[in-house]
């Protein structure tokens, strides 16, 4: 064991700046993809709940495709293949506006949406039919019953799996480095190839990922407690 730790060479001002900007991009990617994923997931779950055959079928295909193809492949597909289908003006706009970031965000969001929609769907199915019936018995119509009674309960029931998927989403942002998004893992590799202090810099990155994961878990816990249905 002749290895000598040398953190000072990876924690220079310049490298700290790189790490900070990496964390910033990682968080932006997480937040942006989360919002898109959540919106799409809600739409998918609602479509699936309509029992309208073509809609149900379409959602099922979307979910299966995104759950059964490696995320790396999806990211590469969005980055290299999708722009080919776009009109030239759009492609130019993308290139001028940080296309790696945008396309990575969309790819990760689509994949996460597939998982989240399943979490929301199981939440919807876990609300007993009798709750729906009770709402209707007061004279609430379908939409009122769904929005005051069924959906709020479904959302509460899906908080734990949603927190899991948010955490996975956060960790999956590291895959964006494959198409050159300057997120935390990308910056870590940069510092590594600059300094050859592989162990130290990855240890720092590990610490950063852990801290951020714990923050997400903590927030998830707060939400879970805030919205529990008093069953503890």
């Amino acid at each position: 064991m002749g290895y000598e730790f040398d953190f000072s060479s990876v924690l220079t001002d310049q490298y700290i700046d790189w790490l900070i900007s990496g964390v910033r991009i990682t968080l932006l990617l997480t937040a942006g993809a989360w919002i898109i994923a959540f919106v799409i997931a809600v739409v998918l779950a609602v479509l699936r709940a309509t029992n309208f055959r073509p809609a149900v079928w379409l959602v099922a295909v979307f979910v299966e495709v995104h759950q059964n193809i490696p995320l790396l492949v999806q990211v590469l597909f969005w980055y290299f293949a999708m722009p080919e289908l776009l009109p030239e003006a759009w492609r130019d706009w993308l290139v001028r506006n940080n296309s790696e970031f945008i396309l990575a965000m969309i790819a990760i969001a689509m994949c996460t949406a597939a998982y989240m929609s399943e979490a929301l769907r199981s939440g919807l199915r876990a609300v007993p039919v009798t709750q729906y019936e009770a709402g209707r018995s007061f004279g609430f119509n379908y939409l009122q019953t769904m929005s005051y009674i069924v959906v709020p309960q479904a959302l509460r029931l899906s908080v734990p799996p949603m927190v899991n998927h948010s955490l996975l989403l956060f960790k999956n942002t590291s895959i964006a480095m494959a198409i050159g998004v300057h997120e935390l893992t990308y910056q870590t590799r940069q510092i590594d190839s600059d300094t050859f202090r592989t162990f130290e810099v990855f240890l720092v990155a590990t610490g950063l990922y852990l801290v951020l994961s714990f923050i997400i878990m903590f927030v998830g816990n707060l939400i879970e407690r805030r919205f529990s249905m008093g069953t503890r």
Partner: peptide
């Protein structure tokens, strides 16, 4: 049917209170 139901209270065997 919704107008009708407003004027009819209904109490279920399983209570069906809204747990949230």
């Amino acid at each position: 049917v919704n107008t009708l139901r407003r004027d009819i209270g209904f109490v279920f065997q399983q209570f069906n209170l809204f747990p949230h």
